[in-house]
Amino acid sequence: MNKLKAMLLLGAMLCLSSCATGSSRLPYDAWYLGLLAPNYMEVWIETADAVDVHDRVFRRAMSGVAAINTPSNLKGNPRGWPNYPGAGKGKHVRGADLPRLIYVRWQSLVEPQTYEAYIPIPEATRQAMVKGERAFCSFDGKWITDYRYMLTVGLAPGGVTKTWIGGPCLPPVEVARVVGEVVKVGPSGGRSGGRYALPLEPSSKAYIEKYGVPYGSW
Rank of each mutant, 00 (worst) to 15 (best):
residue 2 N to S: 11
residue 7 M to I: 14
residue 7 M to L: 15
residue 11 G to A: 13
residue 11 G to H: 03
residue 12 A to I: 15
residue 13 M to V: 13
residue 16 L to V: 13
residue 18 S to C: 13
residue 26 L to N: 07
residue 30 A to R: 03
residue 30 A to P: 00
residue 31 W to P: 00
residue 32 Y to G: 03
residue 34 G to H: 07
residue 36 L to Y: 12
residue 37 A to W: 03
residue 37 A to C: 11
residue 41 M to Y: 13
residue 42 E to D: 12
residue 43 V to Q: 02
residue 56 R to V: 10
residue 61 A to E: 00
residue 62 M to C: 04
residue 62 M to R: 05
residue 63 S to H: 05
residue 64 G to Y: 03
residue 64 G to P: 01
residue 65 V to R: 14
residue 67 A to G: 02
residue 67 A to R: 14
residue 68 I to C: 08
residue 68 I to V: 14
residue 70 T to N: 14
residue 71 P to G: 10
residue 75 K to S: 13
residue 77 N to I: 12
residue 77 N to A: 06
residue 80 G to T: 10
residue 82 P to Q: 12
residue 85 P to R: 05
residue 87 A to P: 01
residue 96 A to V: 05
residue 96 A to S: 15
residue 98 L to K: 08
residue 98 L to Y: 01
residue 105 R to I: 00
residue 107 Q to H: 04
residue 108 S to K: 01
residue 112 P to Q: 04
residue 113 Q to K: 14
residue 113 Q to D: 06
residue 114 T to L: 02
residue 114 T to A: 11
residue 116 E to A: 11
residue 117 A to W: 02
residue 119 I to E: 05
residue 128 A to Y: 01
residue 128 A to S: 12
residue 128 A to W: 00
residue 129 M to V: 04
residue 130 V to Q: 01
residue 135 A to S: 15
residue 136 F to A: 05
residue 136 F to G: 06
residue 138 S to T: 11
residue 138 S to Y: 08
residue 139 F to V: 10
residue 140 D to N: 15
residue 140 D to Q: 05
residue 146 D to F: 03
residue 147 Y to A: 00
residue 147 Y to H: 09
residue 150 M to R: 09
residue 153 V to H: 06
residue 153 V to W: 00
residue 155 L to I: 00
residue 156 A to G: 08
residue 156 A to R: 12
residue 157 P to C: 09
residue 157 P to F: 05
residue 160 V to L: 11
residue 160 V to M: 12
residue 161 T to G: 07
residue 162 K to H: 13
residue 163 T to E: 09
residue 164 W to K: 10
residue 164 W to H: 09
residue 167 G to D: 04
residue 171 P to D: 12
residue 171 P to K: 11
residue 180 G to L: 03
residue 181 E to T: 15
residue 184 K to Y: 02
residue 185 V to S: 12
residue 188 S to E: 13
residue 189 G to P: 03
residue 190 G to R: 08
residue 192 S to I: 04
residue 194 G to A: 07
residue 195 R to W: 01
residue 195 R to G: 00
residue 196 Y to C: 01
residue 197 A to W: 02
residue 198 L to C: 01
residue 199 P to L: 05
residue 202 P to A: 13
residue 204 S to A: 14
residue 206 A to K: 15
residue 209 E to W: 06
residue 212 G to V: 08
residue 212 G to S: 08
residue 213 V to D: 06
residue 216 G to K: 10
residue 216 G to R: 09
